[in-house]
Design a protein around this nucleic acid. Structure first.
Lengths: 185, 185
DNA sequence: GCGGTAACTGACCGATCGGTCAGTTAGTCT
DNA sequence: AGACTAACTGACCGATCGGTCAGTTACCGC
């Protein structure tokens, strides 16, 4: 039995990811849920509260992933674990990642987006700060950002991905290759 | 002597890229230009016409780049030329690329965005169709999309890029590596 | 100076938006 | 049945938006 609140979060996340936060009205979400706009605002005090409820779990998860990385370090053993976890994350939270990638820059000022941006920035810096070589900085960014971007975007370009397993394996392999030069402190 | 029209296009492009098309009002653009909203609409019949004027040159350029690629093929010789041109393109049209990446999905239905999406789709398919191996399809997507994404996004994460020359070299090298498995038909 | 027109403007319009609030309905417990 | 309250609703509000239109200003050529 799915509660109205959970249903609204699910619909909001999907619409925010596809049409954009500013491109999605509360009325639209209400219609898709078969409720009134007032009902949406009964459950969530504002549009921003709805966004926060929809995306916070993914940010929490990324925060945790990053904390584990900071504890496990960049050694080859933990790196493989991290890569697997990161790929699982971008698979499981595809809509949220799509939203962070596409709307992180334009929704600056919304508390939950600032939080997401902060976490992504921390992740990016973790790898970039492991090297002073500009080539490797760029390489690591492409490994992380490019993988996330590709997974979120393939649909838009009518590029059917293979099975999730095959796609996951490909991402893990490519990321492992791109992150191979990482040095453990 | 820069005309009002050109100045409006320059401001619009910058704002559309940073704050989003829907997040940027004509009034905002007018204020930044020191003109009235009506004056903006004197020069451009609509907001969409302003967007089209601002981004069409970049799409034209990408179209041309793609036509050259289709003519030159995927052989190692032409590939190096293409990579250099693609990297130049994402450097020269950084704002436009930022806009296509972030807002291509949510602005579907606007003629000029549909055109941009179509061109990007054609480019993505050109490489993906050169292989049946899912790993390589993903790899090529990461090469192209990841590079574009990283260049547009580095600013957002307070990752100062090195000089343009160094950054360009790094991108060319990484793209060359990722596209190395491409097969010429 | 006069006529023509490019460039600009403020007032206005209807539509949409996020949000408020009083009222209604449905469900639960005593 | 009555009281309470969670869930829901329609009417309303002020703000913002893209766009229209009549009027003004600036510039150029004769």
């Amino acid at each position: 039995m799915v509660s109205s609140q959970q249903e609204l979060q699910r619909i909001a996340l999907a619409e925010f990811a596809i049409a954009g936060y500013t491109g999605t009205s509360i009325q639209r979400i209400a219609e898709l849920a078969g409720l009134s706009k007032s009902s949406v605002l009964y459950h969530f005090t504002s549009k921003e509260a709805l966004l926060e409820a929809a995306v916070s779990p993914a940010i929490d998860r990324l925060d945790e992933l990053l904390s584990d990385l900071e504890a496990g370090g960049l050694g080859a053993d933990y790196r493989a674990t991290f890569i697997g976890q990161f790929v699982d994350f971008i698979f499981d939270c595809r809509q949220e990642v799509h939203l962070f990638i596409n709307q992180g820059p334009s929704l600056v000022g919304l508390a939950v987006i600032d939080r997401a941006n902060g976490t992504v920035r921390r992740l990016a810096h973790y790898f970039a700060d492991s090297t002073s070589n500009p080539h490797d900085k760029m390489r690591f960014g492409i490994a992380l950002g490019g993988s996330a971007y590709m997974l979120c975007t393939a649909d838009n370009f009518e590029m059917p991905l293979e099975s999730d397993d095959e796609t996951r394996q490909a991402l893990v392999a490519i990321m492992s290759e791109l992150l191979a030069p990482v040095r453990a402190d």
